[in-house]
Computed example of a mutant assay.
Amino acid sequence: MSSGTIDIDEFEEADADEFEERTDTERIVLFLDDHDDRAWKAATIAERLGLDTDAVSAILSRLKERGLVRHKRPYWAITDDEERLHSAYRLHHHHETADDQYGEEHLEELQTDEMEQVQ
């Protein structure tokens, strides 16, 4: 089957936004969250997601600074602070909505204290 198609049952059962392109950061967070019973090496995450290892390492470091992942060399895991993860997701969703509505150039004007804390 072509990579440009999916099974109609998969299509029917999917959420409306399930097939949208995700950023590398989103893909990494979703991967770690989906596999929260394991800790992973950056190279393995990169291989699984088809990304560059150095890019994955840089993204993981930024996520660690924000408290969204845990790190014990050489392994990475999703945070065990579910509220922080949910807050970051909500903030990300609001950011995307604002970007769609107002455009990127006006987002700094809309930034809130909550955004500053998570960043």
Rank of each mutant, 00 (worst) to 15 (best):
S2W: 05
T5A: 11
D7Y: 07
D7S: 11
I8R: 08
D9T: 11
D9L: 12
F11P: 01
D17M: 06
E20T: 06
E21K: 11
T25F: 00
E26R: 05
I28E: 01
D33K: 13
D34I: 01
D36V: 04
R38L: 10
R38T: 09
K41C: 02
A43E: 10
I45D: 03
L49Y: 11
L49A: 05
L51Y: 08
V56K: 00
V56Y: 00
A58T: 13
I59A: 04
I59L: 03
L60D: 06
S61V: 12
R66W: 02
G67F: 03
G67W: 06
V69C: 09
R70S: 13
H71Q: 12
H71R: 10
H71M: 00
K72L: 15
R73E: 10
R73I: 07
P74I: 07
P74H: 08
Y75R: 07
A77W: 00
A77T: 05
I78T: 04
I78P: 00
T79Q: 01
D80R: 11
D80C: 01
D81G: 02
E83G: 03
R84S: 06
A88C: 03
Y89K: 14
R90K: 10
R90N: 15
H92M: 11
H93T: 09
E96L: 14
E105K: 15
H106R: 14
L107E: 06
L107S: 04
L107P: 04
L107G: 02
L107V: 07
E109C: 02
Q111F: 08
D113P: 08
Q117D: 13
Q117M: 07
Q117T: 12
V118T: 07
